[in-house]
């Protein structure tokens, strides 16, 4: 187990290092950020002062080391627009994003797991096909199209739901559904395949042979075993998909979360915010992945033993 934990930790460290490096390289791609971001109305002295302040006259390696030092000590600079530390700017957006994420994952699990089980049990009948068509549609409909069609129908036409903000429970309905479309498609497929794998195993036949009621076979032996895979998929894939989805959905519904912040920062070219925001979201995803890996290994000894 120590071996396994060590490997997960190394993988995590390498990925985090790569993310930090990618964000550094990405923001330096355009050459001198001062010219790109501040541009007009700047005197030559002012420009030189800024370049000296941000150490842009030093070599790229020097800048990189200085940047890494800042990352390690938790200093990511000031927002160009809000003029306060980007860590504060991003932190203020954390809770709304987390709420939407949790609501979406909850809805996804509540819909996908029963649907996936149904699709596996009735894979030869129309029920299975119908479920897979639904799952398939989730992949084909981009979340912004889903959001726009829902807004047209439920806000402008029927006048049932509010479009903008996150004040009440009603505000959660459309953003949560828009986020969950793709997630439901992915998780339903995973659940179905995991169930099919498990239901084909010998111990299921044994359970049936010893006269266990079908419901107990499916729920306890089937879903009990497939559930581990399903939960690990939620941690490994759904988290990353949801992070990407939140960017779009939060923007459409003016949800005051990190996703909306990132898009605004990208359009306003507030690159310290963008840089730290991307790092923060990536760290969250990598952390969730690592926790899932470890939890998976704890529950299933085959994982930690097979690979070491």
């Amino acid at each position: 187990m120590t071996d396994y934990l060590l490997r997960v930790a190394i993988k995590m460290a390498v990925t985090l290092f790569a993310i930090v490096t990618v964000t550094f390289v990405a923001t330096r791609l355009s050459g001198n950020p001062i010219d790109t971001f501040l541009g007009e109305g700047l005197t030559d002295e002012g420009r030189d002062a800024l370049i000296a302040y941000f150490q842009l006259d030093r070599s790229i390696w020097h800048q990189y080391v200085a940047y890494l030092r800042g990352v390690v000590s938790g200093e990511f600079g000031l927002s160009f627009i809000e003029r306060r530390p980007v860590t504060q700017v991003v932190a203020a957006r954390l809770w709304p994003s987390a709420q939407l994420l949790l609501a979406s994952i909850g809805l996804t699990a509540a819909v996908s797991i029963p649907l996936g089980v149904l699709a596996a049990l009735y894979r030869k009948s129309w029920i299975g096909s119908a479920v897979m068509v639904v799952a398939f549609s989730g992949y084909a409909v981009p979340n912004f199209v889903l959001a726009v069609v829902m807004i047209l129908t439920f806000s402008y036409w029927l006048n049932w739901l509010p479009v903008v903000g996150n004040g009440t429970a009603l505000h959660f309905i459309m953003p949560t559904i828009a986020m969950s479309g793709v997630l439901i498609a992915a998780l339903t497929r995973f659940t179905r395949n995991a169930m099919l794998d498990v239901l084909g195993q010998d111990f299921i036949r044994t359970a049936r042979a010893k006269g266990l009621p079908e419901l107990a076979v499916v729920m306890r032996h089937g879903l009990g075993n497939a559930g581990v895979t399903v939960i690990s998929v939620i941690g490994l894939q759904i988290a990353s998909l949801a992070a990407a989805g939140s960017v779009v959905v939060e923007t459409i519904f003016s949800w005051p979360g990190i996703g909306q912040l990132l898009v605004t920062a990208a359009i306003m070219r507030d690159y310290p915010v963008l840089q730290f925001g991307v790092i923060a979201v990536a760290v969250a995803v990598v952390l969730i992945n690592a926790i899932t890996d470890v939890a998976y290994a704890l529950v299933d000894p085959r994982i930690r033993l097979a690979r070491s």
């Binding site: 990925t15 790569a18 993310i19 990618v22 964000t23 990405a26 923001t27 791609l29 355009s30 950020p33 790109t36 990353s240 998909l241 992070a243 990407a244 960017v247 990132l262 898009v263 920062a265 990208a266 359009i267 070219r269 690159y271 963008l274 840089q275 925001g277 991307v278 979201v281 990536a282 995803v285 990598v286 992945n289």
Partner: peptide
């Protein structure tokens, strides 16, 4: 696979 690619795309497109 681990890094949400939409975010990296956002960063690159904003900068370039």
């Amino acid at each position: 696979i681990a890094i949400p690619f939409t975010l990296v795309a956002l960063l690159v497109l904003a900068v370039l």
